[in-house]
Design a protein around this nucleic acid. Structure first.
Length: 253
DNA sequence: GGCCAGGCCCCAG
DNA sequence: CTGGGGCATGGC
C-alpha cells in the first residue's frame, strides 16, 4: 500500500494527454515503453518499478501538502476532499512542452486528439497501436503544412519553433523560476501560462501557478485580491486541485 | 449554429 | 507596458 495516489484524477486532470482508459486498463507509452495496468495492480506492478515510481511521483510528501492546504480555507478543503491523492507527474519535458503549446485556446479533449495524432503520424511504434510521442528529431523535417493537416491550426509554426529551440529545455535545470520562465518564452507560442504549465508538469516546480480561464474564475470568485503566494509553498498542487474542481464541479457550492 | 476552449502574437496607444 | 483584436479547429 505504497500509494494513496488518485490514479484516475492524476492521469486525467489535464496535465498529461498520453493516457487512455478502457476495459479497466490505463494505457500510455512512457519513456518508450507501453505501460498498461489496472487500478488493483498499481501497487505491485507500478509502485515497485523505480522509473515508474518517479513518473507517478510516489515519493513526494503529498499527505503533508494536502493537510496543509486543506486547512487554508473551506474551498480548498472541499477540492482536496473530492480529489485527494492528486499527484503531479514527472513527465518527459519535450512532451510537456509540445502538449501545452497545443493547449492554447483549446479544450482538453481536442488537445488529447492532437497529441495522439502526432504520435501516430510521427512517433515510434512501440506495440500494437501504441506509439511514442515524436522526438524533436522525428519532427525536424515535418512541414508546417503537414502539421496543419493534422489539425494543429495556427499552433503548427509554434510547435516547429519549439523543435528548433528544444535545446533550451536542458538549460533550465537549476535556474531561478522567473529566469526559466523568461527562457521558455523565447519559444513562439509559449507565454506566461503555458510556461508555468511546463515548469509545473515538466520540471516539477511547485511554485508554478498557471492561470488559465478556469483559474481566473476561481481567483475572482474565491480569492479576490489575492495571489499565488497565499498557497505557498504548494502553489502548483493547490492550483491543480482548484483547476480540476472548477472544471468538474462548475465551482458549485 | 453560435459559444467556448489549460492563450499567444502583434500592434496600437 | 498595457489592452484588445484576431486566430484554426472542432466539441457541445
Amino acid at each position: 500500500m505504497s500509494a494513496h495516489i488518485n490514479i484516475e484524477k492524476t492521469l486525467f486532470c489535464g496535465q498529461s494527454f498520453a493516457w487512455t482508459y478502457s476495459h479497466g486498463f490505463y494505457e500510455a507509452v512512457v519513456q518508450g515503453r507501453l505501460v498498461r495496468f489496472t487500478e488493483a495492480a498499481f501497487d505491485t506492478e507500478i509502485a515497485s518499478d523505480p522509473l515508474l515510481r518517479h513518473y507517478f511521483d510516489l515519493d513526494w510528501p503529498y499527505e503533508e501538502a494536502e493537510t496543509y492546504l486543506a486547512k487554508l480555507d473551506s474551498h480548498l478543503e472541499r477540492a482536496i476532499a473530492a480529489y485527494r491523492g492528486l499527484h503531479i507527474l514527472n513527465q518527459d519535458r519535450w512532451e510537456v512542452v509540445s502538449s501545452f503549446i497545443l493547449s492554447q485556446n483549446n479544450n482538453i479533449k481536442r488537445i488529447r486528439q492532437l497529441y495522439q495524432r502526432l504520435c501516430q503520424a510521427y512517433g515510434t511504434n512501440v506495440e500494437g497501436s501504441h506509439y511514442a510521442f515524436p522526438s524533436p528529431q522525428q519532427l525536424a523535417d515535418v512541414s508546417e503544412q503537414q502539421l496543419r493537416e493534422l489539425g494543429l491550426g495556427y499552433r503548427a509554426p509554434y510547435l516547429l519553433d519549439a523543435v528548433r529551440q528544444h535545446h533550451l529545455l536542458d538549460e533550465m535545470e537549476n535556474m531561478k523560476y522567473e529566469e526559466a520562465l523568461e527562457l521558455l518564452q523565447l519559444i513562439k507560442g509559449i507565454g506566461r501560462k503555458v510556461g508555468e504549465c511546463i515548469l509545473l508538469f515538466g520540471y516539477h516546480r511547485m511554485e508554478a501557478f498557471p492561470m488559465d480561464r478556469w483559474m481566473k474564475r476561481v481567483m475572482e470568485s474565491r480569492y479576490p485580491g489575492m495571489d499565488s503566494t497565499y498557497f505557498a509553498p504548494y502553489e502548483g498542487l493547490a492550483q491543480q486541485y482548484l483547476f480540476l474542481y472548477e472544471l468538474e464541479d462548475g465551482g458549485s457550492i
